[in-house]
Amino acid sequence: MNEAYSRPEAGQVPVLRLGDILLVTLQGDLHDSTAQQLQQDLSETIVSAGVTGVVIDISGVEIVDSFLGRVLAEIAAQASLLAARTVVAGMRPAVAITLVELGLTLPGLRTALDAQAAMALLEQPVVRSHAGGMRRERA
């Protein structure tokens, strides 16, 4: 918690480029404005850097409310328009339970256990893009 108190200024979300993939690490308690800023910046970065995948690591996030949930869903939708796939990685159990209770199941959002699994998911061919949470039973 102390770590969260001494968080740096709003707008500081570390974004790392690894090959064709952007790794975004969210941590602590996010200001609404920081999240919105991130959403705008990411679109630009996806275009300018020409990446094909975005991994958003939220393993350090203690709560996701409907606002942040919406931001995540919109980032994925925007990225998809820009031909990049998005994977949200590392959601904590308590956060997942709360989101489901809140009524936000975020269908269509790709998920992975952690950043590494997310990277592996993005390396797979596009046909299997619905791996992770969304796979349906095959006949």
Binding site: M1, I63, V64, D65, A94, T98
Partner: peptide
């Protein structure tokens, strides 16, 4: 608000999931 509610809930003995629900 989130930080204070989290801290108060933890002090009162709320479990992690219940803390998260209340803070959310």
């Amino acid at each position: 608000v989130r930080q204070h509610v989290r801290q108060a809930a933890a002090l009162l003995g709320f479990g992690l999931v219940d803390q998260t629900k209340l803070v959310t």
